[in-house]
Design a protein around this nucleic acid. Structure first.
Lengths: 213, 213, 213, 213
DNA sequence: GATGAATGAGTCTTCATTCAT
DNA sequence: GATGAATGAAGACTCATTCAT
């Protein structure tokens, strides 16, 4: 536990620095200076710089995996749309609370190590898989229009990434509103038009979710 | 002109390597070996490694800027949706033809240099601006439902990025279909529902635009 | 005494590791892991890594010093050749019983510390001195041919070292035979030829002392 | 050629330092300071410290291999003993001319790297093989007494190593005399006694080959 | 006495950039 | 213009030793 506490202390500082400077411009010297530990101490807790980085990455990916739940169908379960909304809210809540991890995931984790690239690519593929399955189900149930559900899944994933990336920069944001905007956009993007006829144009919430730029 | 030819020769080789290995794992040694020039010669044509990289980046960004045209309204102009479709096709055509540049832009250009990050961020902002302006116009014209047009713009940008990123990996793709899928998704995501009632569920084209995974 | 027991426990383990990996590739971590003591405990019993190593070295050198006895001349003493034979047997017995120490002495003690180099060099010089003195005496007594007794002494020392080094590797060996081979070789190498006329070509023992390779 | 000249310059300096301080106490900084080159330059010519060291080692071993020639029997060939003498002289000439390499081989090359240990062990084994073959032949021809030719071979190898090691320290030496001493010792150590009856006790040369200590 | 977390000096190695030819 | 040998700053990692508990 002592050990774990120390690791977390270092992880906390490193997270900050990685988010600000990226992987390569962050050096061990930066990290140990911030964490106020000796060089050797660092290597007591982490195998090397990359190991530490991967741990941070695993933190985000792991947490996101937990927060994205498979749609459950059943009499006791909430409406599918409600479940989607909850997934989205859980994800946004985490990402906007942990801006540094978000920044690491979206801007600093990619392109310098094939294995890490793979891990992240894999993660998004799994997310896209889940979305696609939901869409395919929706097509069967005549809720979703006939479309390339894989392409649509990627559109949705990409949309979320981009919005989160922007929202994360501009600190602040009502997450409920933001989730609703994304949700509406995504739902309408794939829904059978006849089902939309009655829907309000906009979620009945006040305020803008993103600054007008 | 001789000079420019030489530069382009080097750029062409460097593009390949950067796409495959990213910025940091690509050495000057790699580049000059491929381009079959001497080390000193490299610095005759480029200020430094970063300069070369930025030039490649500027190639993509510049080309994309050219291909994304402002919506024009006028009697002689094509329908707005047609203009959007054309923008999208032009963009996809380029990105899927220039996979290496696409890879550089989407996976390797980010996170190692604040100035480059800014340049790219700026580019996407400008794209989002354009989309947002169109959406706002659409709202005025009662074509687009009331929504956070900034958030919607980001959704659209993100969706395109993600789909292109995936399509770029899986080499091949009918660009017309792909563009149509994205377009439909985006249009429906923001359109006033009553306008969609008559629309077909799907563009009248055969084949899947992305592999089912 | 308790203290001494603990030291010996550590020495025993360290001996093993030093023999296998040499001085530099052996870490304190290796030693304490084997000896199942804490890092700090190590320094309670030994000044430092080198101190421990020197102690092992002193074990071999000390033991060898004890086993190499000066030739005594007198009516009650065994024949000089018998005394040489006994010296040799005592030395071989120890070295082949303590392979790890032998390995340390012959292969791992040299070249990384001038002081240790000196200590070992000094030891061999003393041994050579003794041999040389015997040879000089033998010359006086007309038993040994006129030769450079120093050079001969080194030949003998070197021969023993090499044979032991090899024998130590190939585990096993009848020490009596081995001693006899070395002894015969050395004696004949320096003896006045006329004294050899009657000697058997070979000690009257069965079996080969070293594998034929 | 230019390249080779540079390599040799560095090798020459490194040889000096390795001989004086051994492998581990010699660091790249020492070498480049002596060779008056920049740190990076070193790595232009050698893969790493070990690579450089191995090259020096290969220099000695290679040269020795060349100088130790197989005994040839034939009407036009010199007497076998003369051939042995020549081998010995060639080896001593080299080793005593190249004291630094000798020191590296005998005192600094062993114990820090299993692969290098093997290479050297292998070398001595090959030398011992050659000696053993000569001895076995001598036994057949009734020149060599019945003995364990492997053990005798090791005695001879070890003797040479030790004498060279000592001679190398005490700088200076008449190599002819030294070779003769070793040769006589070795020959007599294995010769059939009846053949020695007529031999002089000592080569007919003046002077001591080694200092009396 | 025993522990093991913490220390930081010491080294190797890489690689973008320069410059004499 | 072209070359490629030379440079040296930068940075990662190891490991013997110490010391507070």
């Amino acid at each position: 536990m002592e050990r774990q506490a120390r690791r977390e202390q270092v992880l906390r500082h490193a997270k900050r620095i990685f988010a600000r400077k990226g992987y390569h411009r962050t050096n061990i010297a930066d990290i140990i200076a911030r964490a106020r530990i000796a060089r050797g101490t660092f290597y007591l807790y982490f195998e090397n710089k990359r190991d530490l980085f991967e741990e941070l990455l695993e933190q985000v990916l792991g947490e996101l995996r937990l927060r994205i739940q498979r749609l459950r169908i059943g009499p006791a379960e909430p409406e599918p749309v409600e479940q989607l909304r909850n997934n989205l809210k859980r994800v946004l809540n985490f990402l906007l609370a942990e801006r540094e991890l978000t920044d690491i995931l979206l801007h600093h984790a990619t392109g310098f190590d094939p294995e890490i690239d793979n891990r992240i690519g894999e993660f998004y593929e799994r997310v896209a898989d889940q979305i696609q399955r939901s869409l395919d189900l929706g097509i069967q149930m005549q809720l979703v229009r006939d479309c390339d559900s894989r392409a649509a899944a990627y559109c949705i994933v990409g949309g979320i990434k981009e919005v989160v990336g922007q929202a994360s920069r501009h600190r602040r944001r009502d997450i409920g509103i933001l989730a609703e905007e994304i949700l509406q956009f995504g739902l309408r993007g794939v829904a059978r038009p006849e089902l939309l006829a009655g829907l309000p144009h906009k979620a009945d919430v006040a305020g803008r979710s993103l600054p007008r730029n």
